[in-house]
Design a binder for these strands. Sequence first.
DNA 1: CATCATAATGACAACGCTGTCATTTTACTC
DNA 2: GAGTAAAATGACAGCGTTGTCATTATGATG
Lengths: 340, 340
Amino acid sequence: MSATIKSVAEYAGVSIKTVSRVINNEGTVKPDTLAKVQQAIDALDYRPNKAARDLAGRDNYVLGYVYDNPNAYYILAMQNGILKECRANGYELLIHPCDATNANIIDELVNMVNSARLAGLILSPPLSEMPDVLQAMDEKGIQYVRVLSGDKAPDDKPCVLVDDYQAARQITEHLINQGHQRIAFIAGEKQHHSTTERERGFYQALADRGIHPDPDLVVEGTYSFGTGVQSIQQLLALPEPPTALFACNDEIAAGALFGARMQGVDVPEALAIAGFENSPFSTQTFPPLTTASQPTAQIAQRATSSLIRSLQARKRKAENQTVPADIFVPELIVRESTSR
Amino acid sequence: MSATIKSVAEYAGVSIKTVSRVINNEGTVKPDTLAKVQQAIDALDYRPNKAARDLAGRDNYVLGYVYDNPNAYYILAMQNGILKECRANGYELLIHPCDATNANIIDELVNMVNSARLAGLILSPPLSEMPDVLQAMDEKGIQYVRVLSGDKAPDDKPCVLVDDYQAARQITEHLINQGHQRIAFIAGEKQHHSTTERERGFYQALADRGIHPDPDLVVEGTYSFGTGVQSIQQLLALPEPPTALFACNDEIAAGALFGARMQGVDVPEALAIAGFENSPFSTQTFPPLTTASQPTAQIAQRATSSLIRSLQARKRKAENQTVPADIFVPELIVRESTSR
DNA sequence: CATCATAATGACAACGCTGTCATTTTACTC
DNA sequence: GAGTAAAATGACAGCGTTGTCATTATGATG
């Protein structure tokens, strides 16, 4: 049988409430009492019973990560980052894959939060970008933190930003610096902010260098290999085909690379290709892909820490001082697919 | 405030214990009482408070999934399968990525199980194949289910088997049927049972068809793209190079494909390549890879259901009747990388 | 050194459920 | 229809914490 707060209290010669104060860092414990209790905790290898804590306390020490994103690497990196922060703060993580296109998604989330008594939610795209979802959370008083694409926070609720705009600009600039003028762009789902942000960065970089964008060179699709294959065929069939391509993610880029080579077009000699995301795909093509890398686990950790801070502030009824949102700019990674 | 067992009891005009019986399916409730209670539960949208259940009951309704596997798709598929079964049975899932090579891995797991009061553990390779880990779990009385590579259970403790041997045989046979005699094999980490099982299947298929294996055609490496690239160079440099390759997984196969094309070797014309796993890589190469597909989510679900059954049996002190382990044989998927 | 404010600690009732055991109802027998 | 076994239900005490409020120790002040 594992130790309880009672056995620790007896061992240390204090009341259970004092032990409770120690394990909750309430601060109002004399240093030597604290030392005694700490020693008792160590000696008995005591760990608070989460069920009892959750039952007695107001909140549950459980966060939820809700996601709908086909990218396994992204999800796992998010999970890892969140878990790291959760463990450091005595929280647990409940994961909840879901289908964002499901009409009942809001009910599903609210039900989940209630039934698992979650303290808060971590939302990543596309859920973090769905106004109706966010509104429902606000109405139900469910705490959350969002990971968002953007260069400034849309409101004062906690979020962590990934500046796709800036990174896309850098990628496009890189292509321009390689001497390219006719640069194509393949977009993913327009509902994803990341797509529009990357597209915005693409256009801005062109504008910065006085290049007039050619509408024929911009194609829309989904974040998939197939989109890359099809789009590049279409692009290469143009009377004046592009000499460079910026694909909205690595999977599209890999598809485009595949499609180009199928048609006998050499990469990077006849066509430079850049992706986005630094997914494992990007190193497992020939040639490997130039891309942009976002520190997903770190982003997740920061988001989680921001959520936890906000929960704790709310608990002590402290004024929830608005901390400026963290911004991460994905870093350009140059590989052979864009070399001269 | 959400409904409690008490409010349901009042609404239904029964005692809280009767409500408890209903939500726990104890069976000893009269049909019309049960109906009344059910109706009350629906009307009040009642959900049992997990913390209270865990605290009052003996067990925690939480399972743990511990994994150390670089394959994100595999992990996510496992998670999804486990979650599905957990939700169907009122369990929650705690995920715990870890490093199996860590010397303290056993302490880490035991600590985790104790501190989160887990009811049981789901283990996938490589952890499910580490005798010292399993022994520690047995000693500490921690319940677990393993997902294992093999065609028969190594003992009578719960496990789900993935018959890599059989699938590898089928892949090799497929290559032989395509007319190949000089078939190379690139192995992954030898510590993984899946590797040795696949290798065993490879040799068996050769033997079945009277083909004498050539040691030069068998190369060892890791489950990585790089291994594929390097190994194929080595193999193609042989005085009598192979005409077909069976790579231990898709990532190696993709690397080999990459390497072969770099050297100007056509696939499948000059070299047929088969992988294993049916990972997304396998459709995103040119040409797409022949491979074997295991229904990972289904396997995970079955494993979880087996664990839950065994937990419930233990709870009712029922004789834990040994159910024969489920065996899944990955299915051959033929694509262009091995076509004539 | 008495007085008071404040810091530190403790006693005890919840929290919502399950387990145990007692009690009531039902069904069956003669 | 009385007697009995079995089925159905209920009363109540915990489970291990936290929150509330009461109590005691400490230090500052005049």
